[in-house]
Amino acid sequence: MTPSTLAGLVGAALVGLGLYGLIVNPQPLRKILAFNLIGSGVFLVFGIVARKGAAAGFPFDPVPQAMVITGIVVAFAASALAVALILRLHEETGQVLLDEENPASLPTQEGAGK
């Protein structure tokens, strides 16, 4: 098995792991972690596509690699936005569960003042 195939398989496993965590973990921050795992799994799959596309004197196809680089930055931006939302939810309601049985009370004007 070539190193790139191995990395691709790791990527597939990471997508599976992340998906499981995304569904099962009730805490939003853990969901962000799981989401990032899925993301990096997908990036690894891109990595193997890039490696198998070695041609024209390059040991890799630069296009998928460039996409992964932009992808990492976008994943960070998404994580930061999600973290901001969670922290605000925590600030407003004192809890961070996404749970229908305990609906987060709607933010009130008084609550906004901390």
Partner: peptide, 21 residues
């Protein structure tokens, strides 16, 4: 999901389609 993705990866042609040129 992981198995499907792994299947796709194992089925990738080598050398694969490329934009390198």
């Amino acid at each position: 999901a992981a198995a499907a993705l792994a299947g796709v990866i194992l089925a990738l042609p080598d050398p694969g389609p490329t934009l390198a040129p």
